[in-house]
């Protein structure tokens, strides 16, 4: 009984989350009235403070530089995409924010804390308020769907089992998989696994959601479902979201602002519309998936003639 009532409440809460015409999930963000960060208007506490500040951050694996001189600031409640081709350092940037790795140079501030200074316990405290959805869901294969979503509640809270059950059912209901709570991750389709991962990520109502390639490898329908859920859940949670992706069209519909990384450098940033209408050849090639451009089709090689031994003195 209680469960049903709570579930209904949750459903309504999701549906009735405050909506302006700016955060429509289907239409791209066209309305100029929305400004760059349309959702800031709705957010509650410390509206003038950025939840994430990245100041001149550089990171290298040994001598191989991954990121150089990154500057970024993300206001509370915003949904931001970090885009770039494979190997551009976007996942590394996400890891720096989550404190998995520490920057060699510069400062990473998350919710008023300087991540560079945090010790192991401090990072764990910070992460309890982060939710992260991994590329392929990363569900715990030895736990059922229910136990996956309940995992953090059991690890970090002393809630009674009945309440955990209700909470898990609400989270699963929000992603439409309440009926699948007994299933094991191996029995789920890719899209369903991603939805369970989403329910697990929002289990403790995080203030900051990180999505690592949420759309990769999904069919168009599942992709649409995930895209929808990201916007709906975030508006219901009032969380800030960072989406790392190279699925341009999906991301441009979801987010308020885009940062574009190339070879470890922040080469462009702007609203989705600015990105669509860009004249920057590098960004243009990425947004429209052009085969050749600043990112060359051919890997660095000697001239073709040389490799085919067609050069003038070619009888060696």
């Amino acid at each position: 009984m209680l469960l049903q009532r709570m579930a209904r409440f949750w459903h309504i809460a999701v549906r009735r989350a405050p909506r302006s015409d700016c955060d429509s999930t289907i239409q791209p963000l066209k309305s100029p009235a929305c400004g760059v960060f349309p959702r800031i208007a709705r957010t509650f506490a410390v509206p003038d403070k950025n939840i994430i500040e990245i100041k001149d951050v550089s990171f290298a694996y040994g001598k191989r530089p991954i990121l150089t001189g990154i500057n970024m600031s993300i206001p509370r409640g915003a949904t931001v995409a970090i885009m770039g081709i494979s190997g551009s350092g976007k996942t590394t940037l996400l890891r720096l924010i989550a404190g998995v790795m520490k920057a060699n140079q510069g400062e990473v501030w998350v919710d008023g804390q300087r991540v560079n200074d945090l010790d192991g316990a401090g990072i764990y405290r910070l992460r309890r308020r982060l939710g992260m959805m991994f590329q392929f869901g990363a569900l715990f294969t030895d736990l059922s769907v229910f136990d996956n979503v309940a995992f953090q509640m059991r690890e970090h809270t002393d809630l009674p089992p009945a309440m955990i059950r209700d909470l898990v059912m609400m989270k699963l209901h929000a992603v439409g998989l309440r009926g699948a709570h007994r299933m094991m991750p191996a029995e789920l389709s890719g899209g369903m696994a991603r939805r369970v991962a989403l329910a697990r990520a929002i289990a403790l109502d995080p203030m900051l959601m990180l999505y690592d390639e949420p759309f990769t490898g999904l069919d168009p329908i599942a992709m649409g479902v995930i895209r929808n859920l990201i916007t709906e859940l975030n508006s219901a949670l009032g969380a800030t979201s960072i989406v790392v992706t190279h699925d341009v069209q999906e991301a441009l519909e979801v987010v308020d602002y885009v940062y574009y990384l190339s070879k470890g450098k922040m080469v462009a940033h702007g609203t989705p519309d600015e990105f669509r209408q860009t004249t920057d050849p590098l960004v243009r090639q990425f947004v429209y998936g052009e085969i050749d451009g600043p990112e060359a089709f051919h890997y660095h090689a000697r001239p073709l003639a040389e490799d085919l031994r067609l050069s003038a003195g070619g009888d060696n």
Partner: peptide
């Protein structure tokens, strides 16, 4: 090894569980 390869261990760490 499989838990590591499928990022389950990273996911756990991201959930502040060692």
């Amino acid at each position: 090894g499989l838990m590591k390869a499928t990022e389950q261990l990273s996911a756990m760490e991201m959930m502040a569980v060692d």
